[in-house]
């Protein structure tokens, strides 16, 4: 058996950025996942969730929890990422001034996600959207 959860994310809704990550955190605690692993998962998911809020128009987060791993798929409709390799570089950011002023968009997001996940995959089409898949083992 696996646990399946879906969360909607609205672009620009900074007030609720992080809601999905807190819910997932609560589930993982109840499943008695190692606290350190939970921390990495939640940091990665939070970054990814904020990415949708900050850059995309809307998105959907699908969570699959199995006995030994969690798979998180974040699919958004948005501007997409033209050069993923460059976007992975620490400090590189395309965030607008407004977004930066809110304390987001420092260009650490994707590299931070990579550091905190066991597997990560991004596919993107400019002008259409991005799909980010992350897998963490418990």
């Amino acid at each position: 058996m696996i646990i399946e959860q879906t969360y909607q994310v609205r672009g620009g809704d900074f007030a609720h950025a992080g809601d999905a990550s807190s819910k997932v955190k609560k589930l993982l605690k109840q499943l008695d996942v190692d606290p350190r692993k939970i921390k990495s998962i939640v940091i990665a998911l939070y970054e990814a969730e904020v990415n949708i809020v900050a850059h995309a128009w809307e998105g959907i987060i699908r969570i699959l929890i199995d006995r030994d791993h969690i798979r998180m798929v974040l699919e958004d409709k948005g501007p997409g990422i033209a050069d993923i390799e460059q976007a992975m570089v620490e400090g590189y950011s395309t965030a607008s001034r407004e977004v930066r002023e809110m304390g987001f968009g420092a260009g650490m997001g994707l590299s931070n996600i990579k550091r905190n996940t066991d597997q990560m995959e991004i596919t993107s089409r400019v002008g259409e959207g991005t799909v980010l898949t992350m897998v963490n083992y418990f």
């Binding site: 058996m1 696996i2 646990i3 605690k29 109840q30 499943l31 008695d32 606290p35 199995d66 030994d68």
Partner: peptide, 20 residues
């Protein structure tokens, strides 16, 4: 030491079943 008082089951598969 952390205390595990909110876990649904010490066995992960069973915990997942319970959560579902």
């Amino acid at each position: 030491e952390p205390a595990r008082v909110f876990q649904l089951d010490p066995d992960r598969s069973r915990a997942i079943e319970k959560m579902a």
